[in-house]
Design a protein around this nucleic acid. Structure first.
Lengths: 103, 103
DNA sequence: TTACTTTTGACACTTTATGTCAATAATATC
DNA sequence: GATATTATTGACATAAAGTGTCAAAAGTAA
C-alpha cells in the first residue's frame, strides 16, 4: 500500500530534528533503505514503527496514529465513487459496535 | 480479511431468491466452496463479485458496494481506539481530495 | 575529490491469497 | 431411515504480495 500522508509527515519530523535516515533507522533497528521507502510511501509502515517514531521525534503519538489509520482507510476507498458514503456508513457502524463493546 | 456485513447480506439475498450456492456459483463461474466461504467471511469478496451478485439478485448495486466498502474500512480500524477519529479525518481528507479531483 | 546521505533495484525468503478438489456434514425429499 | 441435494471443511498446489538484506548508483555538502 502507498502511504498518502503519514510518510511525508514522518519525513518532515525527521528533517525538523535534523536526523539522518541512518540514525533513525539504527534506533528502529531496520535498514536505511526500508525507512527511506516508508517515508516515500513505497513500503508499508506498521503501527509499531509509527509509535516508535513518535517517541523518537517527541511527537504526539495519537496524532500520528490517526494519520496512519486514515491513510489506510483512504487507501481502501481510492478511486471509489461511493467512498464518502461508505465512510459515513462505516462511522455509524463503528459507533454502534463500540456502544456494544464489539470493536 | 473477514467480511462483517456484506457476506451475510449476500447470503440473505440468495436465500430470498431461493437459489442454491451451486447455481449462483455457476453464474459467477467460481467454485461453490469459494462462494460459501465468501458468504461466511472466510474468503475475500471482490468488488467484481459484489456487482455481479447485485445483478443476479436484482438488488441495488450501490447499496451493496457501500456495505462492501464499509466492511473494508471497518476491518482497517478493528481494535483501534482511534478508529472513529481516523474515520472523521479520513472523511475530511476524502472530501478535500474530491474537491481537488484527486480521488 | 571526498565524505555522507539517500534512492534504487535485485535477491531470496516468508506470508498471504487463490483456485481446485474431494471428503464430510447438514438438510430436505421420498 | 435411505437417498438426493446442498453446504461446509480442509488439504493441496500455485500465485501474488510483502519483507529483510545488500550493494550499486545518485544526490548533496564540505
Amino acid at each position: 500500500m502507498s502511504t498518502f500522508k503519514i510518510g511525508e509527515q514522518l519525513r518532515h519530523l525527521r528533517e525538523e530534528k535534523e536526523l539522518p535516515l541512518r540514525k533513525v533507522a539504527a534506533l528502529l533497528d531496520i535498514d536505511v533503505a526500508i525507512l527511506s521507502k516508508m517515508e516515500r510511501g513505497e513500503r508499508r509502515i506498521t503501527k509499531d514503527i509509527v509509535m516508535k517514531l513518535a517517541e523518537i521525534y517527541s511527537y504526539n503519538v495519537n496524532e500520528l496514529l490517526v494519520s496512519f489509520l486514515s491513510d489506510k482507510i483512504l487507501y481502501e476507498i481510492r478511486d471509489e465513487d461511493l467512498g464518502i458514503e461508505a465512510l459515513k456508513v462505516a462511522e455509524e457502524r463503528a459507533k454502534y459496535l463500540i456502544m456494544n463493546k464489539k470493536v
